[in-house]
């Protein structure tokens, strides 16, 4: 196989996933949180493609394509909500999104 060993792809993929997960949990800006969700999905994609390469099967690559399509759909809804929040002048800070707890 050409290129670095598969372990490196897994390390990078997992690191991207972990950065994304930390971003969703720690950051408070809705846009950054959406971005972090994308990072998580792309980390998973990299792992899928690396494994597809190792097994010499296309399943993983098809899965990665499907994940990309779904991620795009999710972001469309997410950005739509961010725009709706901005229009309604709802605070763009998740800590302040606590109307529902009262």
């Amino acid at each position: 196989m050409l290129g670095p060993a598969i372990a490196w792809y897994l390390v990078v993929g997992s690191a991207i996933f972990a950065i994304g997960a930390a971003g969703v949990m720690l950051r408070r800006n809705p846009l950054i949180m959406l971005l972090s969700l994308e990072l998580m999905l792309n980390g998973a994609n990299l792992v899928l493609i690396a494994f597809a390469r190792r097994h010499g099967s296309l399943d993983g690559q098809v899965f990665a394509l499907a994940v990309m399509a779904v991620a795009a759909a999710e972001v469309v809804v997410g950005l739509g909500l961010v725009v709706a929040m901005a229009r309604r002048k709802i605070e763009i800070d998740v800590d302040l999104l606590s109307r529902l707890r009262k």
Partner: peptide, 17 residues
């Protein structure tokens, strides 16, 4: 929901691996 789906996909990737 997106967070949980991403975790599920990541898990599925390892099962596939």
């Amino acid at each position: 929901g997106g967070f949980s789906s991403a975790i599920l996909v990541f898990g599925a990737a390892f099962v596939y691996g």
